[in-house]
Each structure stands twice: as C-alpha cells, then as structure tokens.
C-alpha cells in the first residue's frame, strides 16, 4: 500500500515536472487605464462564508484565480500569504478563487500550502468566465470603487515591495 502511495506521488511529480522545471515568475502589474467595473462575485469560501464584491466595496481587494494543479499558482501561494500578512492590517482584502475543483481537493491542498486568506470555490467556472481571464493564474487589484485597477498574468512574488507599494497607493489614494 505504501509502495502504491509512493508510485502515485512519483507519477504526480513526473506529471508536473516540466512546468516546475520551467518555473520563474512574472514581474509587476499592468495598470488598466480605463478601469472597467469588476464583474460580480458571489461565492462561498472553504469556511462556508459568502463573499460578494458589494460587501467589500470601499476597500482595496486583490482577486486571484487559481487551481491546485497549476504549478505557478502553487509557486506564488506562499508569497501571497506573506503579502496578506503584511496588508491585512491596512484593511486590504485578498480573495483566491479556485476554479473547477471540489472542496476536498482544495482542503487537501491547504495541508501543504497553509494560507489564512479566504479560498473561494468557483466549481462550475461561471465566475471566471465572466472575468477577463485567459489563463491561470491571473490576479486583479480592485480599487475601492469596485473597478479593475491592475492585472497580473502569471505568477508573481506577491511580497515584492514594488507590488505591495502599488496596492498600498490605491488604498492611500482612497483614504485621503
């Protein structure tokens, strides 16, 4: 039985190997000059709590689309947790929306990648289909007016001070 487990893990490692090997992160975020309104979100997180954009209006919000099988998504998760620990006291929120997977799959994932920000479930992929997303991971920063201010395609080191500063500037601009 143990041997079977090792084989399954080995197979999974091999399935993911080329993407890991390629690795690497993108850099920075692209400002969206026209700041279109963010499409609605109405999803439940792993704790059973419902999240809508309307309830978070007035705050800067980071919205990340991801999946457990997506190597750059996994790679950026720890830095996302560090960013969250830095930003949460400023009233900045982070929602990570899992695409197409079950609650059990996401729970299992969190045993290896523990995070404290809400993990939302978009099991039928209806939410992501309404957003301007072509691939995973994609992350948006939403301004306090509920508009898409920045977009990042591909994984990032989210605790990069340059990125954190871009997010904080949005927050500070709204506070003054």
């Amino acid at each position: 039985m143990r041997r079977l487990g090792v084989c399954v893990f080995g197979l999974w490692m091999l399935a993911m190997a080329p993407a890991w090997a390629a690795g690497g992160m993108g850099q920075g975020m692209t400002p969206l000059p026209d700041r279109p309104p963010a499409p609605e979100i109405d999803l439940v997180d792993l704790e059973g709590q419902r999240h809508t954009l309307a309830q978070h209006r007035g705050k800067v919000l980071i919205v990340n689309f991801w999946a457990t099988w997506c190597p750059p998504c996994r790679e950026e998760m720890p830095s996302m947790e560090r960013a969250w620990q830095t930003l949460k006291d400023d009233g900045i929120l982070l929602l990570a929306i899992n695409v197409g997977e079950t609650e059990d799959q996401v729970w299992t994932f969190t045993s290896n990648y523990p995070v404290n920000f809400p993990l939302l479930l978009d099991q039928d992929s209806k939410t992501i289909e309404a957003w301007p997303v072509q691939g995973l991971p994609t992350t948006f920063v939403i301004d306090p007016q509920g508009r898409l201010a920045y977009r990042a395609i591909g994984g990032r080191a989210w605790d990069d001070p340059v990125l954190l500063e871009q997010v904080r500037e949005l927050h500070d601009a709204a506070s003054h």
């Binding site: 690497g24 920075g28 692209t30 072509q134 691939g135 990042a152 395609i153 591909g154």
Partner: peptide, 14 residues
C-alpha cells in the same frame, strides 16, 4: 494554453 492572449511587459503564461 489560451488560444488568444495579450502579454504586457512582465507577463507570462503557461
């Protein structure tokens, strides 16, 4: 890989 995608400076996808 998405059929169509625009990559701004710094973006990447797989």
């Amino acid at each position: 890989f998405p059929m169509q995608q625009v990559f701004q400076p710094g973006d990447y996808n797989w």
